[in-house]
């Protein structure tokens, strides 16, 4: 037990101040530190994402992009720092003295329901049809009436171009189709933020386009998105802001065109020269 575990976030911001920074932001991460044993994976990451903004995080493998994304919906606990989604702490509750304690399982679940997460490996539920994969969140978590949840699920699957695959099982679908079901599944919870963790990295090249098309449509529709990807074309076209991470820290951020054309940091230029 590190002492920071008990006092995490005590120094971050000014607790109780009336206009806390990031209160209006969709996602506000402040000085997030995450360790796996002795390895410090996140070394003080701060990032604010406005409502409707599309932020694309790039960086080499092991730079902490995925871990940071997983911290945002508390799939990973943070060692210090704090993350707020829609102005509310995720994963923790603040005690009267300003210290953070891990929230109850139910509170954590309620926060997570507002955040859509799309995994690199899809993680569809293989024992359910595509339709039930999409419907089960609203059905089980929001306790929506069964027929309504199925109707909404069918509409979402149609929106991602899978109207003819409602009764298909995940194992019967291609990777691109599975990932589109997974996006529909996340959208079914009507999240205010969508997190994409290398959503196209496990796909055959010819299937990348169909998934990116769905993501592009979402971005155009005003969804708040944080996207970890190696698809630089997508980043250039869709991102409002590009964030470069390396070695557990944000190296540089800015408008994608500007960064692609003339990144300020040598590390960013070096990385981009390899991937562009």
């Amino acid at each position: 037990m590190s002492p920071e575990g008990e006092e995490k976030g005590a120094s971050a911001g000014a607790p109780g101040s009336p206009t806390r920074p990031g209160a209006a932001a969709a996602v506000a991460a402040t000085a997030v530190v995450k360790r796996f044993g002795a390895l410090e994976v996140l070394r003080g990451v701060s990032l604010e994402v406005a409502r409707g903004e599309v932020v694309v995080i790039i960086g080499p493998s092991g730079s902490g992009k995925t871990t940071f994304l997983r911290c945002i919906n508390h799939l990973e606990k943070v060692d210090s720092g704090r993350i707020c989604v829609n102005g509310q702490l995720i994963g923790y509750r603040e005690r009267a003295d300003g210290r953070l304690r891990e929230a109850s399982r139910r509170q954590i679940a309620e926060r997570r329901a507002e955040i859509g997460f799309v995994f690199q490996s899809f993680n569809l539920f293989p024992h359910m049809t595509a339709l039930m994969n999409v419907a089960c969140g609203p059905l089980r978590v929001k306790r929506m009436p069964r027929q309504r949840s199925l109707d909404e699920a069918a509409a979402l699957l149609e929106r991602v171009g899978l109207a003819d695959k409602l009764e298909a099982r995940p194992l019967q679908l291609s990777g691109g189709q599975q990932q589109r079901v997974a996006i529909a599944r996340a959208l079914a919870m009507r999240p205010s933020v969508m997190l994409f963790d290398e959503a196209t990295s496990a796909l055959d090249p010819e299937m990348v386009g169909e998934v990116l098309a769905v993501m592009r449509e979402l971005a155009t529709g005003g969804m708040t998105m944080i996207v970890v990807t190696h698809e630089m074309g997508f980043a250039a076209e869709v991102a409002d802001r590009l964030v470069m991470m390396d070695n557990g820290q944000i190296v540089e951020e800015g408008p994608p065109r500007q960064m692609f054309a003339a990144a300020a940091q040598a590390r960013t230029r070096e990385f981009l020269s390899k991937v562009l």
Partner: peptide
């Protein structure tokens, strides 16, 4: 796989719901 649990959790299910709705039905096989 742990990814199955994480997918359930990220939908807002509690660990108990994940066990009952996601993990056990697959474990049965």
């Amino acid at each position: 796989g742990v990814g199955q649990s994480e997918a359930g959790l990220s939908l807002g299910m509690t660990p108990g719901q994940v066990m009952r709705r996601i993990v056990l039905p697959q474990a049965v096989r």
